[in-house]
């Protein structure tokens, strides 16, 4: 009765103040920002995202694209597609940035131990998968082959070009890139990312597939994996829905029975199959 009045505990909606330390232009419309971590305990799992608060503009869910072994900085790769993302990529070193996170479940890097990992990325979808590559390279003996199938719109839309070249030289690592529209000077593959599946041989029983990109591309890629005999329980997709809070409280990011922000963003194809082909879910 006369107990003390309850106090309002720390709000998970309150951003922590961070600083931009480095901004790198990846392509004509995509930038990678390095940001100081909110504190020295900051860690993340490959595939997790943060809510980035641009002062006065609002919050954006952005996947973490950095190296999980080096959480001394937060790294985000952002494609400027709207007003808020344009403001985000126009930040300069020393600028203030509000950060909440990391949120979400992340890629199944533990379950994939001992297996071949095939990553399928479409466009900016490579950014959330880059931490998986860093993780595998840092624990190389724990994994079999690492294959990346990466589709971009055109050669000038390819991100992380220097790293792609470096990774391709590593043992047990195959990097296959393709573009939808290639000029005559482009010597690489032309065709959608799913067309790269016929370039690779998989052992379906020891393969884990991780797919990130536009929803339609992911469903086609998932079916390519299935056609190669990979179990739908070993195929993972990173879903995108409208995320406003990142913690399952605002209701916006529902996809069927799931909250993409807290139950995902990574889901097995087996759990999504019922919903991903339904319209307007």
């Amino acid at each position: 009765m006369l107990a003390e009045m309850p106090v309002i505990s720390r709000d998970p909606m309150q951003p922590a103040g961070c600083r931009v330390t480095h901004v790198k232009k990846e392509t004509h419309d995509t930038w990678t920002l390095d940001v100081t971590p909110p504190d020295k305990h900051w860690r993340f799992q490959p595939g997790q995202f943060s809510m980035l608060y641009v002062f006065g503009v609002g919050e954006l869910p952005i996947s973490i694209s950095g190296d999980p072994q080096h959480p001394s900085k937060q790294t985000y790769t952002v494609r400027a597609v709207g007003m808020a993302t344009r403001r985000l990529v126009s930040l300069k070193p020393k600028d203030w940035l509000g950060v909440r996170g990391p949120f979400g479940n992340g890629w199944p890097v533990e379950q994939a131990r001992g297996k071949d990992v095939v990553l399928v990325a479409g466009g900016i979808g490579l950014a959330p998968l880059r931490p998986v590559i860093y993780h595998i390279l840092a624990h190389r003996a724990d994994y079999g082959r690492l294959i990346l199938l990466y589709g971009a719109r055109s050669p000038r839309d390819i991100i992380y070009t220097a790293e792609l070249k470096a990774w391709a030289k590593l043992p047990q690592t195959e990097i296959l890139t393709t573009v939808d529209y290639g000029g005559l000077s482009w010597r690489g593959n032309v065709g959608v990312v799913t067309s790269l599946f016929r370039r690779i041989a998989l052992n379906p029983l020891r393969t884990v597939g991780m797919i990130c990109g536009p929803e339609i591309m992911m469903s086609y890629a998932a079916r390519e994996f299935e056609q190669k005999g990979v179990s739908r329980h070993d195929i993972y997709l990173s879903m995108e829905r409208n995320m406003k809070c990142g913690i399952g409280l605002c209701g916006h990011c529902q996809h069927g029975p799931n909250f993409v922000c807290k139950d995902g963003p990574v889901f097995t194809y087996s759990s999504l199959e019922r919903w991903i082909y339904k319209r307007e879910i």
Partner: peptide, 14 residues
Amino acid sequence: GVYRDPYYEANRAA
């Protein structure tokens, strides 16, 4: 859940 709404929680407790 893992994340709680602190305002609701405080209002509710009162």
